[in-house]
């Protein structure tokens, strides 16, 4: 009866299978990439091979920086596979949080109880937030664990900043999905909007890095806001982190406002 945050608890605890699966996938990605650094990123033959690749390609993949341990970690884990896994997880959770729940008909029964709509959105957003932060913390811990054995030489404070941006970037896609789902009452719209932020952000960064003429695309890319200065190498751009997390919070507020003002389940 007097349970605190009942909706958060349910959203968080009932999804433990999904959270565990994504954690396993991220752990897999980390253990796949990082131990290979001494033989790939750090080796001279590999560097020669990368030099022989078209410059556009290395820029698009951020492989221009993989000669150092931090750069390698930035490009492969935070910038590519980890980014992909985190974004998919976050978008899936965000789209399901309100829009998916409404579409499946279950939100109606929840709202018929002693809760407010704003509370439903906020507690479920909190659950999304905590799951994303947990995954980012896991990645942080695993990189620290592998730092010595894989000769990565990453500064812990830089790694921490990168993890904050890593979580923030995934959360931005997730809260976009939550917001679009909450506004439309449809899971699919949430998925589409969340995926669009992730995919366009990545694409604008890859294309924007090609030349000065299209450099303006970088300003539209959350991926570039977060990773433009390679946080694992150079430390986080904390202003960018503030923006990314702030926009996420604003999207949650918009979602709460929107659900509070409309008919549900129609």
């Amino acid at each position: 009866m007097s349970t605190t945050l009942p909706l958060f608890r349910r959203a968080f605890l009932d999804s433990w299978r999904s959270t565990t699966a994504w954690a396993a996938a991220l752990a897999g990605a980390t253990f796949l990439y990082l131990p290979l650094y001494p033989s790939i990123g750090g080796s001279t033959e590999m560097q020669g091979m990368i030099d022989s690749l078209p410059a556009e390609m290395t820029k698009a993949l951020n492989y221009d920086q993989i000669a150092t341990g931090p750069g390698y970690t930035q490009a492969t884990l935070f910038g590519l596979l980890g980014f992909l896994l985190m974004t998919i997880a976050s978008v899936g959770w965000g789209a399901a949080a309100v829009g998916g729940d409404e579409e499946s008909g279950q939100l109606e029964l929840t709202l018929a109880h002693g809760v407010t709509r704003v509370q439903v959105v906020l507690e479920r957003a909190l659950s999304l937030f905590l799951r994303v932060v947990l995954l980012a913390a896991l990645v942080f811990a695993m990189v620290r664990l592998l730092n010595d054995s894989a000769h990565l030489a990453i500064r812990p404070d830089n790694l921490f900043g990168a993890a904050v941006l890593f979580a923030g970037l995934a959360l931005l896609s997730g809260t976009t999905a939550l917001c679009a789902g909450a506004m439309s009452g449809r899971r699919t719209y949430g998925l589409a909007a969340g995926a669009a932020v992730g995919v366009l952000g990545y694409t604008f960064n890859a294309v924007g890095r090609q030349s000065e003429d299209v450099g303006w695309l970088l300003n539209l890319s959350p991926y570039h806001w977060a990773y433009g200065n390679s946080p694992v190498v150079n430390g986080a751009d904390w202003a960018a982190a503030g923006w990314i997390w702030g926009i996420s919070a604003a999207l949650v507020a918009v979602a709460a406002f929107s659900v509070d003002r409309r008919d549900v389940g129609t």
Binding site: R17, G105, Q106, L109
Partner: peptide, 24 residues
Amino acid sequence: YLPGELFLEGRVTGRTLLAHYQAI
């Protein structure tokens, strides 16, 4: 309230679900 169309999809037992509704 009992809705006209009841959707209960979670991977939880009836007991757990009722405990949740009890909390709210």
